[in-house]
């Protein structure tokens, strides 16, 4: 699968890119730091037994929508027909930090919602122009209900999940398969130092679930899988109950 990945240098994106390169998918990496992208491309090539330079990369920043079109142009030049776009990039900060730093809050909201949505709009247009394809985006279980520890981050992810749902309905018939991955707490650099809740997952595990969903074109998938059932219950709980349990 000819795939563009935004966010492959770290965490779940790195794990997913390794799994895809290992099975022979052709990749093009997007991210903020050219040197870091180059190092990740060399790593993927070495692990997959590809020649140096087989995996290209281009600069792209969720906070700079002007970078999106040139990044996709570079990807198209390298890959030819685009078949899948994966977005694992995003920003995270604790609710306490976001409440005390308005500029950081703006950046997180923009990167995780409007930046990601605009990036997906560019991806959607390019995939549809190629006759359809797959768009796999990492949202979060934090977007399922409003919660005290993730008010702002959760709101951005809730908006993103709704957008992906609508996108799936709007363009499904034209061959666009939208996959919304909702991880729970995953042990990555993004969550480093945070207290660990139950059902914490590993990046490799989440990447494997995301990849299976990408292949099958499943609209929504939880990772680790237990979160599907946890969230099925959490969505039904009345506000009064949530308030009582300190949600």
């Amino acid at each position: 699968m000819n795939t563009v990945i935004l966010g492959a240098t770290r965490g779940i994106g790195r794990a997913l890119a390794r799994a895809m390169a290992a099975r022979g998918d052709r990749l093009f990496l997007l991210g903020r730091d050219a040197r870091d992208l180059g190092a990740s491309a060399r790593d993927l090539e070495a692990r997959a037994g590809l020649a140096e330079g087989a995996i290209g990369s281009a600069a792209c920043d969720l906070l700079e929508p002007a970078t999106f079109a040139p990044a996709f142009d570079a990807a198209a030049a390298a890959l030819g027909r685009l078949e899948a776009v994966v977005v694992t990039a995003g920003l995270f900060a604790t609710q306490e930090r976001l409440e005390s730093d308005r500029e950081l809050a703006r950046r997180v909201l923009e990167a995780d919602f409007s930046g990601t949505v605009l990036f997906c709009e560019e991806a959607r247009e390019r995939l549809l122009a190629a006759g359809g394809g797959r768009l796999c985006v990492l949202s979060s279980v934090a977007g399922e209900r409003g919660r005290k520890p993730v008010v702002l981050y959760g709101a951005a992810k809730a908006g993103l999940s709704r957008y992906l749902e609508g996108l799936d309905h709007r363009f499904h018939a034209r061959g666009l398969r939208v996959v919304c991955v909702k991880p729970g707490f995953v042990r990555t650099s993004m969550t480093e130092g945070l207290p660990e809740p139950p059902f914490a997952g590993e990046a490799d595990e989440v990447a494997a679930i995301a990849l299976a969903a990408l292949d099958r074109g499943r609209p929504v998938v939880y990772a680790p899988g237990i979160w599907r059932w946890v969230m099925a219950v959490v969505r039904l709980l009345p506000r009064a109950v949530l308030r009582r349990v300190g949600f």
């Binding site: 190092a39 990740s40 060399r42 790593d43 070495a46 140096e52």
Partner: peptide, 9 residues
């Protein structure tokens, strides 16, 4: 353990 890239082979 997360700094685990092969930089050149």
């Amino acid at each position: 353990v997360r700094a685990d890239r092969i930089l050149a082979l």
